[in-house]
Measured scan of single mutants.
Amino acid sequence: GKMTGIVKWFNADKGFGFITPDDGSKDVFVHFSAIQNDGYKSSDEGQKVSFTIESGAKGPAAGNVTSL
């Protein structure tokens, strides 16, 4: 299901970062391709987002990331 969290950091040059879930669980990796914004796929530190957890090649990753 959908979770909410805060972007801990995001490196636009490398195209990835981490989200800290609101439920206190482990930080989740986020790749720019998962960000659902139109246009520039980046996110700012401290941005509140909703997301799903997908199982990626390197473990859990955020999917369907949407700014709230």
Rank of each mutant, 00 (worst) to 15 (best):
D44L: 15
G17C: 06
A62T: 02
D38K: 12
G24V: 02
N64R: 08
F32N: 06
F10D: 00
D27L: 06
S55R: 12
D38L: 14
A12T: 11
K58N: 11
S50F: 07
K2N: 08
V7A: 00
V28F: 04
S42H: 13
F16S: 01
T52G: 02
T4V: 07
K2V: 12
A34E: 07
P21D: 02
K14S: 06
S55L: 14
A62N: 02
S67D: 06
A12Y: 13
D22L: 07
A62Q: 02
P21C: 07
E45H: 14
S50M: 10
G24L: 04
D23Y: 05
F10Q: 01
T52I: 11
T4A: 04
I19T: 00
K2Q: 09
K26D: 11
N11V: 03
D22Y: 05
T4G: 03
Q36D: 10
V49P: 00
G15F: 04
V30F: 15
G63M: 14
G56F: 09
F51K: 00
K58V: 07
F10E: 00
T52D: 07
D23T: 05
V7P: 00
G5P: 00
S42D: 08
H31A: 06
V49E: 01
S55K: 13
N37Q: 13
G17T: 02
I53C: 08
D38N: 12
V7Q: 02
T20P: 02
G15P: 01
K2W: 11
S25I: 03
T4I: 08
Q36F: 11
V65P: 01
D13V: 14
G56H: 11
A61K: 14
D22P: 02
F10A: 02
V28H: 00
V65F: 02
Q36S: 11
E45L: 14
K26P: 14
G63H: 14
G63I: 14
I35N: 03
G39R: 09
K26M: 10
M3T: 06
N64L: 08
K2T: 11
K8L: 06
Q36V: 13
F10C: 06
S25G: 13
G59L: 04
P60M: 10
G17S: 02
G1A: 12
V28A: 01
D23W: 05
E45D: 09
V49M: 03
S25M: 05
G56D: 08
I35P: 02
K48P: 10
G46M: 09
P60Y: 10
M3Y: 11
D38Q: 11
V49D: 01
Q47D: 11
T52V: 11
G24A: 04
N64F: 09
A12N: 09
L68S: 06
V7F: 09
N64T: 06
V65A: 03
S25C: 07
A57W: 13
W9G: 02
D13I: 14
I6D: 01
G39V: 11
I6Q: 07
G1Q: 13
G5E: 01
D22K: 03
S50G: 04
P21I: 04
A57E: 11
A62H: 02
S50D: 02
A57C: 13
S55Q: 14
F29L: 03
D22G: 04
G63Q: 14
F32A: 11
A57R: 13
F51P: 00
G1C: 14
D23A: 04
D38S: 14
P60W: 09
A34G: 06
G56K: 07
G24E: 03
D22V: 05
K2S: 08
G56L: 07
D27K: 03
S50Q: 08
N64H: 09
G15A: 03
G24W: 05
K41Y: 12
K58G: 09
T20D: 02
S33M: 07
G1Y: 10
N64S: 08
F51H: 00
W9S: 01
N11F: 05
A57N: 10
T66E: 10
D38I: 13
F16N: 00
I19K: 00
E54G: 07
G24N: 06
G63T: 14
S43H: 12
Q47E: 10
S55F: 15
S25F: 04
Q47R: 12
A61M: 15
N11T: 03
Q36E: 10
P21V: 04
N11C: 11
I35R: 00
D38G: 13
L68C: 09
S25Y: 04
G46Q: 08
G5Y: 03
D22T: 07
G39S: 11
A62G: 02
A12Q: 12
I6L: 06
G24D: 03
I53E: 00
Q36W: 10
K8E: 01
Q36T: 11
G5S: 02
K41F: 14
D27E: 08
T66Y: 08
G46F: 11
D23R: 03
D23P: 02
K41I: 13
H31C: 10
F16G: 00
V7L: 13
S33V: 04
V28G: 00
H31Q: 04
S25V: 03
D13F: 13
P60G: 04
S33K: 07
Y40E: 08
F32Y: 12
G59E: 02
F32M: 10
S43T: 15
D44A: 15
N64W: 09
V65G: 02
V28T: 02
I6P: 00
S42W: 15
F32I: 14
I6R: 11
A34Y: 05
E54Q: 11
A34N: 08
Y40D: 08
V28N: 00
Q47M: 13
H31E: 04
F10T: 01
P21K: 01
V7T: 01
V30A: 02
K48I: 08
A61T: 14
G15S: 03
T20H: 07
K14N: 05
G39W: 14
Q36C: 14
G15K: 05
E54F: 13
G46I: 09
T66S: 08
Y40W: 15
F16D: 00
V65E: 01
V7E: 01
F29P: 00
T52M: 07
G1F: 10
I35W: 15
A57K: 12
L68P: 03
T66F: 07
D13A: 14
T66N: 07
K41S: 12
F29I: 03
F51Q: 00
T66I: 13
E45I: 15
V30G: 01
M3I: 09
A34H: 06
K2E: 07
Q47H: 12
G15E: 02
T52K: 03
G46A: 07
G56A: 08
G17N: 02
A34L: 03
P21S: 04
L68T: 07
D27A: 06
T66A: 08
G1M: 12
H31S: 07
G46S: 07
D27C: 09
K41C: 14
T66Q: 12
E45G: 14
A61G: 04
F32K: 12
G1L: 12
S43N: 09
D22C: 14
F18D: 00
T66V: 13
I19N: 00
S33G: 06
V65H: 01
I53N: 02
E54M: 13
L68H: 06
F51R: 00
K2P: 09
N64Y: 08
F32R: 12
G15V: 03
G5Q: 01
K41R: 12
N11L: 05
P60V: 11
E54W: 10
V28I: 12
Y40T: 09
Q36R: 09
A61I: 15
